[in-house]
Amino acid sequence: NKGQDDIRWYGATKVGDTAYQVTIQAKNHQFETGHYSVHVYGKSQLEGNRTIGLATTAGFNVTSVKVANPSVQVTNHNPSQGTLDVVVSESADTKAIKTVKVAVWSESNQSNLYWYETSTVVNGKATIAVNQINHKGIVGNYTIHVYTTTQDNQESGYNAGTYRLESKTLQTLPAYFIDISSHNGNITVEEFNRLKQQGIVGVVVKLTEGTSYINPFAKAQIANAQAAGIKVSAYHYSHYTSASEAQAEAQYFVRAAKNHGLSSATVMVNDMEESKMLSNINSNVQAWQDEMKRLGYGNVVHYTMASWLDIRGGQVSTSQFGIRNFWIAHYVNGYTYLDQASAKAYAYYNNAAAWQYTSVSKKLTNNLDENIDYTGRFTI
């Protein structure tokens, strides 16, 4: 009923010497009723295997269709870890999913409400990971509401029930971490222990840059931090300006992570600072993120300056990637040191994953970047 907006090419199956058959699914045509046109084409062996028209049939009429709701399930519920997954699945009788949003909260006034969103649908299934860290670490019974939008922009809502999340460690947030590269050289176990005594419980180590550079100090920096009991994450300094380059850089980053023994659960950071990246940046970042997830390293965070974000007039879409997946650099004191207590009091960008509040920390001999962790991803 809308012209060829739902045109679909089907490959027929040979069922006899002179017969072919195909099954047409209403799902592939948005379950529309009305008259359907059917044209038949084939490859001509007499004309160089060229595709030619064979028949324009009378088509068929559809007067009613069966449309079911998608399956909404909560899986991998781990109360002590404060995590669970919400899985929304299509079937042959459901419309194709475009996006899924999930609202989760435990407080009666919804003060710890957090919205999750994904447009990634793989084999008809969308999965959203819920984590207590996104809800101020509060122990409680969490209500889960799921909202789906189909490809024809029809919206539906579902109550997925109430589940308890009770991780106690998350209540220690916010916490503090540093990020380091080859510029920081070798940091000994003793120095990491000294940092830990000063409230630093996480470190993000630069592994790679582009597709040709590996931090020569990374192996020792990772080992010494782990020996001191400091949580290790990793970052990649990005240069990509196209989807293919983004995928190549993601592959290079993951290979280095595996070579350094970093598991797939490691927080993997996309460091975006090169101005040449701004052209078509959101689609390229999406390509990088999708490739990271395809390679099994899906715990990704995007680091950049506040001015690059759409919430500060920039081009990077916080809604597309989720503000909770951004680590934001903004030095309110410029190049004058801001201490941890003051950073906690300011609480800038506390709806994000983390805030880099200074680059001139003197906790070791050379200047260090210092950061506040709002979600526990870098420190717990």
Rank of each mutant, 00 (worst) to 15 (best):
G82R: 06
I133K: 02
Q286P: 03
H77G: 07
N186E: 06
H236S: 06
V121R: 09
G42P: 15
G16V: 10
K2E: 13
R50P: 09
F217D: 11
N284T: 03
V87T: 13
A343C: 10
N134E: 07
T150P: 01
N141Y: 08
N78G: 08
I380D: 03
T318Y: 13
S44M: 08
F60R: 02
K125M: 11
E209A: 10
Q151T: 12
V205Y: 00
G34I: 00
S263V: 12
L368S: 01
G199Q: 02
V301A: 07
R294C: 15
K258E: 13
Q81D: 07
H183C: 10
E245W: 09
K98D: 15
E107H: 04
V62F: 07
T118N: 04
S307D: 14
S342I: 08
F31N: 04
N351R: 02
K258D: 13
Q197H: 12
H35G: 11
T33W: 15
H145D: 14
T18E: 10
A306R: 06
A68I: 04
Y36C: 13
N367Y: 09
T172D: 10
T336R: 01
T379L: 04
S212N: 09
K231R: 12
A354K: 01
R294L: 11
A341I: 01
G199D: 02
T172C: 08
T23R: 11
T266R: 05
N123K: 10
Y20H: 15
T379S: 08
F192T: 01
T150R: 00
T150Y: 02
